[in-house]
Design a protein around this nucleic acid. Structure first.
Lengths: 335, 335
DNA sequence: ATCATTTACGTAAACGTTTACGTAAATGAA
DNA sequence: TTCATTTACGTAAACGTTTACGTAAATGAT
């Protein structure tokens, strides 16, 4: 195959130990032999074998990332941040997409553990007991990203969904709206579903806005079709609604589409607000006002936390990232 | 750390060779010892060390993928396919994003080579001479995805941009349009820029439609802002245009946005067509008619080709993937 | 000049596997 | 029963590194 440290040593008339020391800049060699060895390395085009290094150092400089699916902007933005931070640190990232499937997830975890990745980032999905046990048994460092575990003390980075949702609803009220509806995601989802619903409800009730069943429609997921269906249902059960809050940008954009089909003008007849601030959000018509999560930053933070954890051995503190209302053109002031 | 094959061997009163044979199902052991060993493995929760395996087998079951950037739907869809095919094969994928930066790219290549990945997929970007040399010297199997090299015989998978663009223009003409404009990407880009421009031009001239400078505006990239700028320029230089073809979905959606701002109705006043069929395309208002590339399929194909190349040692043939007009609502028939 | 210390290396074990080779016991054929 | 063959293992080398330990030569102090 390719050249090894042995070939370099032989050609430079030194021992492999010396080559290794030079490669790692540890001292214990003269300038003369150093330049000699470096020259040989150059000549041969020698590339150190990270697999052998990994075996002896017990560090692979690789981290594993688990996402429910890859083809979603949300995931992409997170991944972007993770990859950036990992690369700055000289590490690479292995991506896995679990399709929210238990068996697949376990299979991936096994793979990552066998590959001896340095740590795992588990993103955008609920950490089931089974997963947690499996990871814990292997003593693999773990960070949760855009999700959180109530049952286990696993460090996470995420925004506060409850607060973010509250502030979205408040924003709508500040704009003069009182007939406010929500197209929620899955209400069984205790991470991204329930808190957003409850934050919304709390905001309305704190401001004495009547609130009952007709204000909210519950979708199955957080997707575009959920949004188009959602708007239709909401309009059925709450015809005089003037502003709606979608639990994700995709939902909101679905609502935008449905509104367009129905001849409802946004924001003139209806204000629409989203959640996530995906890249999509600035490309919609009209550009979507939304509550922004700093996705790339979050990914970066998670990776940095993991990396620091590897260095220091200490479990880092979880991070609640700031959310922010991104004002664009899909919400109109109402007098 | 975790248990090794030695621990298993000791506890089961056999040699490590026997454990290894059982683990790899190679025969040469009795049923009795097999079940004994399996039981010990279960008890200890032993997980084989893929790093050690990689060292001796010279196969890491990992492939590296290089993208210009991660946060783009195009890349995501490709990645999705790659990851699926790799996983079906028991391999994992390391993602890298080069930011189209020469130095970064070389650094990533070096990383991947040092990690001894089994092969590399280089996606959506021009394979510079420097890259090609570097990879060739390392004898690393290489597949090009959604790009192609004219200078080197590297197998690729991609659609025929020239043809695809031709058929987009033809589609517009078939719908009765004769004043057709194009917002192109970067015309210096000989993979995704030039062929699409030339395919468009050829289609018009084949159908005797007059064609000059005012038909095409050249953007710097393929992004949303390029689209919004592009439309404005095009309208300036070609006010009576009735249909436009954007060299990417993002460009087309940018044009949609600009049109909306300008009070131009799509498709009533102006038809708009894109290229890529990103997930975006069905979420736009109106849903975008576009020429679709089977992105996930392409990613899958590239990964499969690479994997097969590793098995057989033969260089596979390049694959031209079919494109297809995806009819949605952004183009209107004109009588 | 002598001794202690430092410098500049080399040797060999270790990391956790796979596998070529060897061998004793079991099996089968005659 | 005897010999050949097969079965079921064990031993040890190899993969390409890092590093603890040892040591001869160089340097410095006196």
């Amino acid at each position: 195959m390719s050249y090894t440290i042995k070939d370099v040593a032989k050609k430079a008339n030194v021992s492999i130990a010396t080559v290794s020391r030079i490669l790692n800049g540890q001292g214990g060699y003269s300038e003369k032999t150093k330049s000699k060895v470096l020259q040989v390395i150059e000549e041969l085009g020698y590339q150190p074998n990270a697999v052998a290094r990994g075996l002896i150092n017990k560090r692979t400089h690789t981290i594993g990332v688990l996402f429910p699916k890859l083809s979603s902007s949300l995931v992409t933005d997170l991944l972007d941040g993770i990859e950036k931070a990992a690369n700055d640190n000289g590490s690479s990232v292995i991506v896995c997409h679990t399709e929210s499937n238990g068996e697949k997830t376990i299979k991936y975890l096994q793979l990552l553990i066998e590959k001896r990745v340095d740590g795992i980032i588990f993103a955008s999905e609920i950490l089931k007991e089974e997963y947690h046990q499996y990871i814990t048994k292997s003593k693999m460092p773990l960070i949760l990203l855009s999700t959180e575990s109530y049952a286990y003390p696993v460090p996470f980075v995420k925004v506060n969904d409850y607060h973010a949702s509250y502030s979205a609803a408040k924003y709508l009220m500040d704009k003069g709206h009182t007939k406010i509806g929500m197209i929620s995601g899955n209400k069984e989802d205790i991470i991204a579903g329930k808190p957003r619903i409850e934050g919304f409800q709390k905001a309305l009730s704190d401001h004495n806005i009547p609130l009952d069943d007709r204000n909210i429609v519950f979708s199955r997921g957080f997707t575009f079709p959920d949004g188009v269906e959602g708007l239709k249902k909401l309009l059925d059960q709450f015809p005089d609604v003037t502003a709606i809050f979608g639990a994700s940008d995709e939902i909101a954009i679905g609502a935008l589409s449905a509104a367009y089909q129905l001849g409802i003008k946004v924001p003139e007849d209806l204000s629409v607000m989203g959640y996530d601030n995906l890249q999509l959000a600035e490309m919609s018509i009209p550009p979507l006002t939304t509550v922004g999560q700093p996705l790339a930053k979050m990914g970066e933070t998670a990776a940095k936390m993991l990396l620091k954890m590897l260095e220091t051995g200490e479990v880092p503190e979880s991070r609640i990232m700031p959310h922010k209302i991104i004002e664009r053109l899909s919400v109109k002031e109402r007098k």
